Amino acid sequence: MLVLLCATCSTLVRAKIDFNLDSESYFRIEIAYGKEASKKVKGWRKLINELQGEDLDEKLYEINRFFNRFDFVDDLVHWQQKDYWATPIEFISTGAGDCEDYTIAKYFSLIELGIPEQQLRLMYVTALELRQPHMVLAYYETPTSIPLVLDNINRRILPANKRRDLSPIYSFNGNGLWAAKAMGTGRKLRGSGPMKMWDDMVERLDRVMYGDKQE
């Protein structure tokens, strides 16, 4: 289930996190989720390393395919919370999540692969056929391009103008929050309120990555 953020939400979305996990990080993952979870995360890191030299289309395709294999499970069932944004580590370790979790994991993975943050946006939409809010990842070749949509419902990567089943609401990344306009760039919004869901997720990610060593 999605929390629909208002125009006054924070535009500060921290994205650059060092995902080169050390032995202590993997130990913390094993303690929290078991040895199998540690193997899953290592498999993700292996994929990231293998894709570093590939072209853009291959990176988008493989990251989209990798995460779309995971099970869709509602937050109430999976986390016993009405709305919960899982870290990529939590999503990979448990092998399940909802639309925000797919999108967040793809977002961080593509940044790890060197795709500039300004070319990626987490986009809130309405899934018209399902009649419910949804989140997808949008990739923009240029600031004014029609973006490509990475989605866990329709697993094909398609230009936004081919996704007539989605109605955009707004999008965000580390550079700001935008009012969506026909799945395009839209109008940048101003605001200074805290984006609590994201902040909570990043704080949990820091604890897994760095333990008590974080500043």
Rank of each mutant, 00 (worst) to 15 (best):
V208I: 15
N64Y: 03
R163D: 10
D151F: 01
T126H: 09
K106I: 05
R156D: 14
L177Y: 01
F70K: 10
T144N: 12
P143K: 00
N68T: 03
L158N: 03
A127Q: 09
F70T: 12
E54Q: 13
E100S: 12
Y139F: 15
Y84W: 13
P194C: 01
Y170I: 00
A182M: 11
Q118W: 02
R164G: 15
K39H: 12
A127W: 06
W198M: 04
I169G: 03
G186A: 08
E90P: 11
K82R: 07
A179H: 14
S171E: 00
Y107I: 05
E36Y: 10
M201G: 03
Q118K: 06
K35P: 05
K42F: 08
Y140G: 00
A32T: 09
L51R: 09
T126C: 10
A180W: 07
L150W: 03
G186V: 02
Y140W: 12
K59S: 01
C6K: 12
I111A: 09
M1V: 05
D199K: 03
D212G: 00
L122V: 14
A127V: 00
P194E: 02
P159M: 09
S23A: 13
D212M: 04
K16F: 01
T126N: 15
D206R: 11
K213Y: 09
D165H: 07
D212V: 07
A15K: 11
I48Q: 03
T142E: 11
L122F: 09
L189M: 14
R69F: 05
Y124C: 01
D151H: 02
K40M: 12
E215R: 07
H78D: 15
Y33F: 15
Y33T: 08
A96S: 15
I48K: 07
D22R: 01
V202Y: 06
V125G: 06
L205C: 02
P143C: 05
R69I: 01
V77N: 10
L76Q: 14
P168S: 06
N64M: 07
G114D: 10
G53E: 11
G193K: 08
T126L: 11
G53V: 05
S38Y: 00
I17Y: 14
A105Q: 08
Q214Y: 09
I115G: 02
R187Q: 11
L12Y: 02
G97K: 12
I153W: 03
L158H: 04
Q214D: 08
V125M: 07
E54D: 10
L148F: 11
D151V: 00
E30M: 14
M197P: 07
Y84K: 03
L158C: 04
F172M: 15
G184M: 01
S109M: 11
P133F: 06
V13D: 00
S171M: 07
T87P: 03
P116L: 02
P143Q: 00
R155N: 12
F70Y: 15
L166V: 02
W198I: 01
M1A: 04
Y33K: 13
W178R: 09
A7P: 11
I63D: 04
G176N: 07
I153C: 00
E62I: 11
L130I: 05
E90D: 11
R164S: 14
M1S: 13
I111C: 08
E62L: 13
D83K: 01
Y61M: 06
S25C: 15
D165K: 00
L60D: 03
Q52V: 06
L158M: 08
L51M: 14
R156N: 12
N154F: 00
Y102N: 02
Q80D: 14
M201L: 10
A15H: 09
